[in-house]
Simulated assay, not measured.
Amino acid sequence: MEIKIEHLNKNYGKRSALKDISLHIPVGMYGLLGENGAGKTTLMRILATMLEASTGTVQINGIDIKNKKEVRKIIGYLPQEFSVYPNMTVYSALDYLGILSELPKHLRKQRINELLRQVNLEQEKNKEFKNLSGGMKRRFGIAQALLNNPQILIIDEPTAGLDPEERLRFYNLLSELAMDRIILLSTHIASDIEATCSNVAVLFSGTVIFEGQVKNLLQLGTGKVYTTTLMQNELNQFKKKHHVISIHQNGTDISCRFLSNTGPQKEWVTCQPTIEDSYMYLLSSLKQGGGIDVVY
């Protein structure tokens, strides 16, 4: 089971949304990380057969992406914006989507009941879609994407708008589902990748700037992340010299977490980087034209 993407490009007139993307995506959770507008959704829509690439090739489990009918039999897709008729109940909406997927009636009933248990929506099956919470709607979205028991699950920005409890529940659900299928997860939130994925590709302006294990991405920030304490009137000048990640008010002082290539100074404390720190360091260095050696 593998998604093979080779030299993929997508152009809209003179604008390039994707530039020479090559990725091999194995079984398990695989993350696509990047800023809004980096090209993540465009790539996912191509993999879901919703868009056609300008050039390049894609094979999903050995099936050419151009064979849309066969590819759609083995994929499930949860787009960033997902909805159904708001007055439909959870069960009737899944049943309707199952009909559109040409699932036989006896199989629809069996699959829907299984999926409602799996995504913890059994108690909500008679509730109208419009009355579901944000987390319930995302879980419903996973259920509809799993209706045809796909080998590949493509999920775009799944945790947007979820509270911490719902996000944790969503992470656990995805981890269970990834045991025997490929799950491709797109997000601009680095902690989503850290919580769920073993491998990640980082996109920047339509280009892959990192591909590898999450632990290797984490190492990029080693020795580059610090904290220091500043007076309030020192902050603006400090920001001109360093990439500030976060600040916290401590009475009249400010605790500042930041990135620097210059090495520690006396009043700086070296920090263990998080995945977000390393991701921010990667983006910051690229935007400033710095050279980072990345293992692909």
Rank of each mutant, 00 (worst) to 15 (best):
E2R: 04
I3V: 11
K10L: 09
K19V: 15
H24P: 12
P26V: 05
Y30D: 01
G37H: 06
T42Q: 08
M44H: 07
M50Q: 14
I63C: 06
I63S: 03
I65N: 02
N67R: 05
K68W: 11
K69N: 09
K73M: 13
I75H: 01
N87K: 02
S101E: 12
E102G: 01
K109S: 00
L115F: 13
R117A: 05
V119N: 02
Q123M: 10
K127T: 06
F129M: 05
S133F: 13
G135H: 13
M136D: 01
Q144T: 15
L147E: 02
L147R: 01
I152F: 09
I155D: 00
A160H: 08
F170W: 12
L174I: 11
A178L: 12
R181W: 10
T196I: 14
C197I: 05
N199Q: 13
V208I: 15
I209Y: 04
E211C: 04
K215D: 01
Q219D: 07
V225S: 03
V225H: 00
T228P: 15
N233T: 09
L235A: 02
N236F: 12
K241T: 14
I247W: 09
T252V: 11
D253M: 08
N261M: 10
T262C: 07
G263S: 09
T274C: 11
I275R: 04
Y281N: 08
L282P: 00
G289I: 12
V295F: 05
